[in-house]
Design a protein around this nucleic acid. Structure first.
Ligand SMILES: [Mn+2]
Ligand SMILES: [Mn+2]
Ligand SMILES: [Zn+2]
Ligand SMILES: [Zn+2]
Lengths: 142, 142
DNA sequence: AGTTTAATTGAAATTTAATCTCAATTTCAA
DNA sequence: TTGAAATTGAGATTAAATTTCAATTAAACT
């Protein structure tokens, strides 16, 4: 279970798996998709558990450090995250009109990136490839 | 000249090429590289011209809309821009230690992206590919 | 040249995501 | 049970970016 990974990550740092942290964790892993911290905070609030904004943000950062969650992009109105554990790495297309996010993965692009890193004597650790434009629905309307 | 393009862009909108706008433009096109709005503002201040922060930000947005300048990434401490007119599109590798930015371009990756867009019925307009990791210098030290 | 009109400017206020502060509370191992 | 250490949350703070709005400037039109 993913929660065990989180627990181990925490105890490795002398930190505790508190109710608030569990609440944040559960809300994030309850669905697959992208989310913003503020909406996450509100969802937790709705679910009945009490966890302050400060705790939500703090836990989110811990989850990112643990590798279970990734910050996938920074929009004008803040960061966007997704839980990545158990999901294959992928990149995103974002519709500029309706904000729809389409996920994609290209082995070829991944390999080309590795090649470019080697050529430049650069040790790549992570990357973000975001294509912005118009989704099928919104593209048609112009 | 690039300034003519800007002038035309402005007049097409009924806007004027003022001293402040010229100052922002000149400072940006005086060198090739990446910059943050605040540093740009300070450089203009140093150069003697008077232009408020508000004007710098406003002009920067106009330059982006005109296509002469691009917002290339959003860091924790704000946006990073570069003037792109006359420069071929390229992507970036960013060293997590020293913040060095290495530019690269891959025709193959560009083509693969176009292909993926077609497949997903997505009209790609722009993209950002940022590889994070360790540059040669900083990678050696670990 | 003088008048009208619209755009522009800048100082300060505002917005907003995210972080920080710190006193009170909780946790847990000894 | 006790004490050290971690955690929490309400509110303060930070900082990038935008907005406000009265004063100024530039152009367009008699
Ligand atoms: Mn995704
Ligand atoms: Mn560049
Ligand atoms: Zn759309
Ligand atoms: Zn480096």
């Amino acid at each position: 279970m993913e929660i065990e990974i989180f627990r181990k990550f925490l105890s490795g740092r002398g930190l505790k798996l508190t109710n608030q942290r569990v609440a944040v964790f559960n809300e994030i892993f309850a669905f697959h998709g992208h989310f913003e911290p503020e909406r996450l905070y509100l969802k937790i609030k709705d679910s009945g558990t009490r966890a302050s904004r400060a705790s939500v943000y703090r836990t989110l950062n811990l989850l990112v450090e643990s590798g279970l969650v990734e910050k996938i992009t920074r929009t004008e109105k803040g960061n966007v995250y997704e839980h990545t554990y158990g999901h294959r790495h992928h990149d995103h297309m974002v519709c500029e009109v309706c904000d729809e996010i389409i996920e994609f993965y290209s082995e070829k692009i991944e390999n080309l990136q590795d090649e470019i890193c080697r050529k430049n004597n650069f040790r790549g650790v992570s990357h973000t490839l975001e294509i912005r434009g118009y989704c099928g629905k919104c593209g048609r309307q112009r």
